[in-house]
Simulated assay, not measured.
Amino acid sequence: MKKSLLLAAAVLAVAPLAAQASCESVKADISQKIINNGVPESGFTLDIVPNDQADQSGGQVVGHCENDTQKIVYSKTADGSSDADATASPQTGTSQDAAPAH
């Protein structure tokens, strides 16, 4: 009985770390897709913000993580701007971000 309680406590203690790593991996995947579309790495930022702050971030939501409690927000930066910035699309979110088919 004590072993199962200790195991449950250990899982609960590690769960937030695993969830954050998940957001970081989603952010890295989206970043790579944007770079592959021709946007220089210095030409944008991706920020992980809580859902209730996504609208105030001033950028475009391109993904989500942590059971849809966090959003990944794309913002262009002044550094590294080029013609590729104007033509590359940050639409690189997961398939869950797409509108449902009816």
Rank of each mutant, 00 (worst) to 15 (best):
Q91D: 15
N67K: 14
S4L: 15
T45E: 06
I30G: 01
I34R: 02
E24V: 03
D85H: 13
P50L: 07
F44S: 00
D68R: 06
D29K: 14
N67P: 03
Q96C: 10
K27Q: 14
D68H: 08
T77L: 01
S57D: 13
V39F: 02
A84W: 02
T77R: 01
S4Q: 12
G93E: 00
A21W: 14
S89C: 02
A86Y: 09
K2P: 02
C23M: 05
A21F: 08
G38Y: 00
S95T: 11
Y74S: 01
E66K: 15
G58H: 07
A18R: 08
A15Q: 11
D85R: 10
C65L: 03
D83L: 13
Y74N: 03
P100D: 13
V61I: 14
A98H: 12
E24H: 09
Y74V: 02
S81K: 15
A21T: 09
A8Q: 06
L12S: 05
D68T: 07
A98N: 15
I35M: 06
A88N: 00
L17S: 11
S4I: 11
A10G: 06
A98I: 08
P50A: 06
A86F: 08
F44G: 00
Q53G: 09
K76M: 12
K3P: 01
Y74Q: 02
P16E: 08
V61G: 03
G38F: 00
S25A: 13
G93R: 01
A101H: 12
S42A: 09
Q20E: 15
Q70F: 06
S25F: 11
Q53W: 08
D52R: 13
I34L: 03
A10Q: 05
S42C: 02
N51K: 10
V11A: 02
T45H: 00
A28L: 10
S31D: 10
M1N: 10
Q96P: 00
I30P: 01
S82E: 04
A13N: 09
L5V: 07
H102I: 10
Q60C: 00
V73N: 02
K71M: 09
A19L: 15
D79V: 14
D79H: 13
E41C: 03
K71A: 10
A8K: 05
G43P: 01
I48L: 09
A10F: 05
T77K: 01
A101V: 15
K3Y: 10
V61H: 06
D55W: 04
S42W: 05
V73K: 00
L17Y: 14
M1V: 08
L46Q: 01
Q96E: 13
D68P: 07
D83F: 12
L12K: 06
A8H: 05
G63K: 04
N37K: 11
Q53C: 10
V62Y: 04
S75T: 15
Q32F: 07
S89Y: 01
D97G: 12
T45F: 03
Q56C: 08
A54W: 00
M1W: 10
P16W: 07
A84F: 03
S75V: 10
A86P: 00
D97C: 13
P50V: 08
S31K: 13
D83T: 11
I48F: 02
P90R: 03
L7P: 03
A18M: 14
F44W: 01
S4G: 05
D47P: 05
S57R: 10
A9N: 07
L7R: 07
K3H: 09
A99W: 11
I48R: 07
S42H: 02
S57I: 07
D55P: 01
E24M: 07
C23G: 03
L7H: 05
I35F: 08
